[in-house]
């Protein structure tokens, strides 16, 4: 829908908003079939990326009733706060093209996307744990503190929360004991992006990698997380998120024993 073109992005930037308010006729259908853009995602896009005041319309329905302060907003409102797939695709295409105007290399662009994702991830983990604690009646709220359960938590819960389904694989790297890989066969966030030839190294899933990094940081497991496209015949857009954990995490894990 929104192709990432290195040269056309800036010229089309001003024409896109005009077409944005009229969603495709099957917008509802799209929304239903793309369930990953559900409750949690609203918060991601509003809090992580949105630029507050100008985003009041996006922040509806909370923003609809005039100026409501953020402390009064319910965090568990689940109806009517979904962001449609077209809106996300538009926002993300703008994020990518904005980032692209201020970088020299593919690596820098990925770093910028990853930084944005990290900001989201830090917030996602807080919000997720808070909601989980509140639904379990605030009784002894817990978070994962061991490495493997934490990775499994990201593999299933965080991925389901952000992308609508659990990751397709969680593997330990054969190269180093500090490396783990999360695989997603068909990453939904970037499904409308086609990478031009001259940027073939780029993976916009760097944003997802940033989310994973932020979540791990929230769980006190600092790591460097990168995304790599590893196509297979069946899944040409298969993406591997590579987690390289900080030494301190492994030392702590060793200290805790089995």
């Amino acid at each position: 829908m929104f192709n990432l073109q290195s040269n056309s992005a800036s010229s089309s930037r001003y024409s896109l908003p005009a077409s944005a308010p009229s969603p495709p006729p099957n917008a509802n259908q799209t929304k239903r079939s793309s369930s990953y853009l559900s409750t949690g995602f609203t918060n991601l896009s509003i809090s992580g990326i949105g630029s507050s005041s100008s985003n009041n319309d996006l922040a509806s329905p909370a923003g609809r009733g005039g100026e409501m302060n953020i402390l009064d907003r319910p965090i568990n409102k689940s109806r009517g706060v979904e962001v449609g797939l077209p809106a996300w695709a538009f926002l993300f295409s703008e994020i990518v093209s904005y980032s692209q105007t201020r970088v020299d290399s593919v690596a820098d662009l990925e770093k910028r996307l990853s930084t944005l994702g990290r900001e989201s991830g830090i917030r996602i983990i807080s919000l997720h744990l808070l909601r989980a604690a509140q639904t379990s009646n605030n009784k002894d709220p817990k978070k994962e503190y061991r490495l493997i359960p934490a990775l499994q938590f990201i593999h299933t819960q965080v991925y389901r929360y952000c992308f609508g389904k659990a990751a397709d694989g969680l593997e330990k790297s054969v190269e180093g004991d500090d490396e783990y890989m999360l695989t997603l066969n068909n990453p939904p966030l970037t499904q409308h992006i086609s990478i031009p030839k001259d940027l073939s190294q780029l993976s916009c899933e760097a944003f997802s990698a940033g989310i994973v990094e932020g979540v791990l940081e929230g769980l006190d497991m600092p790591a460097r997380v990168t995304a790599h496209t590893v196509p297979t015949d069946q899944f040409p857009r298969r993406t591997v998120v590579l987690i390289k954990l900080d030494r301190s995490v492994l030392d702590r894990e060793e200290g805790l024993g089995k």
Binding site: N43, S52, I70, L71, I75, R123, L127, Q134, P141
Partner: peptide, 15 residues
């Protein structure tokens, strides 16, 4: 739990 909720809501602010 209350203070945490207030904090999370504050932290969701992109600023």
């Amino acid at each position: 739990m209350d203070v945490w909720e207030h904090y999370v809501k504050t932290a969701l602010n992109p600023f």
